[in-house]
Nucleic acid binder design. Structure first.
Lengths: 207, 207
DNA sequence: TGAAATTATGAGCCATGACTCATCTTGTCA
DNA sequence: TGACAAGATGAGTCATGGCTCATAATTTCA
């Protein structure tokens, strides 16, 4: 799978610079970013960019792969260390926050027809959510009847909304809280009463 | 405000054709659509398009104005004829459905920095939602504490999600239902029990 | 019906941006 | 250290797409 001969020192350095620059530039301008600007910001000639990534699509694919790897990593550590009852909600929130920081690129994260095919990494991400969802079901922290595709759809929506709309931090937090309320059991995490009390409609006052 | 001399017959006809074609083409390709394709689909030369709309931006602005006018109209009729207690939810659903049908254009509906400034029409839309929200509060159908900016944020998110993700009709309906659950009071519209029963966490099974 | 004005046409102009290639530079390794 | 291969460079090619303008076609109205 990786029988690639080691790169020369400068090549390795340049490749890293290009990836870093590309992540910035694509975050700012999305798909519309120009390869030339990536080269400029990396302090490299255009030809160098194309030597490492034969196509703009390839470059995009590379940074998306990195990005997704980082997101999946976080899921791992949440699965290992976090509270299974709240992992679903924690991870959801984490992804939205990351997206807001990363910007326009995310609009390509889950897309199908466009530039980059999601492939196995997105499947991995979905699988993780599946596990978190099951754990949350066991803990009774999600509403009964919530399906995985709904969770993913809500995630897609929130992420896109956060990127497209220019929400303040505060509004973003409140919106995520609302969305999670839609998933959360009435006495789940975020509301105080232990169980079976009358207050099942109160606002969850986060943010 | 409208002291414009009447257009020649063919000019009026062409203008209409161009608008119709543009709506189609932009719905398919979004901002990336080319003026040439619009012209072709309208059965008109490129020059004609540019005579009517000096800039691609202008063309986009024109169809967005039409679009928004239609959406606001619907709000009017809901305000006039619909049930004030559910108008908020009905209108929310209507907008998402329209967007899904209209496609990529909507990604520009609420955007600020980009191509078209929203202007007063978006304000009108927000105002409508404000009224619906108040009515729903009076009727006790929304959770206490729900703010207008949250409603608009959830709307933006859902619309963008519906356009970006390739959701099935079914998934879209379920997702909208979930989002509305986040806004709905526990015994609001969509759940059956009249009031004060123990079942405040059941899925609202729409779709 | 026959000017005169309005509108339509579409071959180009120009800017942008993805991508190539002949040439020069630099890392590597004996 | 010297020679060779891997890599870097950037001017140039090509395609696309917004937009113009000289010319031709229509509409209008007296």
């Amino acid at each position: 799978m990786t029988p690639e001969k080691p790169l020369r020192a400068d090549a390795r350095r340049n490749r890293a610079r290009i990836l870093a620059a590309a992540e910035e530039v694509f975050a700012e301008h999305g798909d519309a970013a120009s390869t030339e600007e990536v080269a400029a910001r990396a302090g490299v000639a255009i030809g160098t960019v194309f030597r490492h990534f034969p196509t703009k699509r390839d470059l995009l694919a590379a940074i998306m792969k990195d990005l997704r790897a980082r997101l999946v990593d976080r899921a791992q550590s949440l699965a290992a260390e976090g509270d299974p009852a709240t992992a679903l909600f924690d991870y959801f929130g984490f992804l939205v926050e990351s997206s807001a920081r990363i910007g326009t690129v995310v609009s390509l994260l889950a897309e199908e027809g466009t530039s980059v095919e999601p492939g196995e990494q997105v499947r991995a991400l979905t699988d993780r959510f599946g596990e978190f969802l099951e754990a949350a079901r066991d803990a009774g922290t999600v509403r009964p009847g919530v399906r995985l595709d709904e969770v993913m759809a809500l995630l897609t929506a929130t992420v896109h909304g956060a990127v497209a709309g220019a929400w303040s931090d505060d509004l973003r937090h409140r919106t995520v809280a609302r969305v999670l309320d839609a998933l959360r059991a009435a006495d789940g995490p975020g509301t105080r009463k232990p169980r079976g009390t009358e207050s099942c409609a109160g606002p969850s006052e986060l943010g």
